[in-house]
Design a protein around this nucleic acid. Structure first.
Lengths: 124, 124
DNA sequence: CGCCACCTTTGACATCTGTCAAGATAGAGC
DNA sequence: GCTCTATCTTGACAGATGTCAAAGGTGGCG
């Protein structure tokens, strides 16, 4: 299902929150849905994480060694942010030899994109 | 420029951050772009705000008096969250007589939706 | 004018978050 | 086994965030 490597890095309690809800232009979220989805937006709510995610999403997979360049924060901080993205279900990772690679979970991204899609009462 | 009611409630320093960038499946964000967009995701990162926003987005406009129902937080807290959404550029508001109405800014929502749209290297 | 309902602002407080330094873990290669 | 590199974990701390109680407008209505 993924372009990238096989599933891995089990550890996130994310399961399958992924397929979710109609666009909220169509129907409001329930309490449970909002509670499940907010963490994904929260994961994208930090500028460093947002940029990290965009770097990962723009290539089939990204090595941490390439991600750390171009940031002014320390290695541990990058690692922390990658963990947040992983635990939110937005990316997955795998160690291959010396390096660790990250790639996006397209289904999760699509779920968010669908939520924001226009087409309801308020969007023309 | 907006489908909704006339502009109002000036106060947010949001200007026109709205039209922005290619989907990050296509191209990573710059530091500046990430800094401009992260606040929008941050505004959606809280379950209460996310639900408030979905309630506003699912109708042409929403009265605060209707929004406060169905939440377990106090009135001031709802007001605070609405302000965050407004200052992030996601909604606008206007007082009409006794009541205050909120509606979404479709252009802002579309900007986020476009960012998340699949179609790049990592998606499929 | 006086009162009340609606909504926001202010002030305070506990919790969460981003960051770094220091230490730990995992592989590669000698 | 030892060492070196790459990455993650832990611990600590300043600053941001969500929440409420109390107080402050704003407008309708008698």
């Amino acid at each position: 299902m993924l372009a990238g490597p096989p599933a891995s890095s089990g550890g996130a309690p994310v399961g399958e929150v992924v397929a979710c809800c109609p666009p909220f232009a169509v129907q409001p979220l329930t309490v449970e849905q909002a509670g499940g989805i907010a963490p994904m937006f929260k994961a994208l709510a930090d500028p460093v994480r947002l940029r990290l995610f965009s770097m990962i999403a723009s290539v089939p997979e990204a090595c941490v060694c390439d991600l750390t360049e171009g940031f002014e924060v320390s290695g541990p901080t990058i690692s922390h942010h990658l963990r947040v993205l992983r635990e939110a279900g937005l990316v997955e990772s795998e160690r291959r030899g010396t390096w660790v690679y990250y790639w996006t979970r397209p289904d999760a991204v699509r779920a968010l994109s669908d939520l924001l899609r226009p087409g309801g009462a308020a969007d023309r």
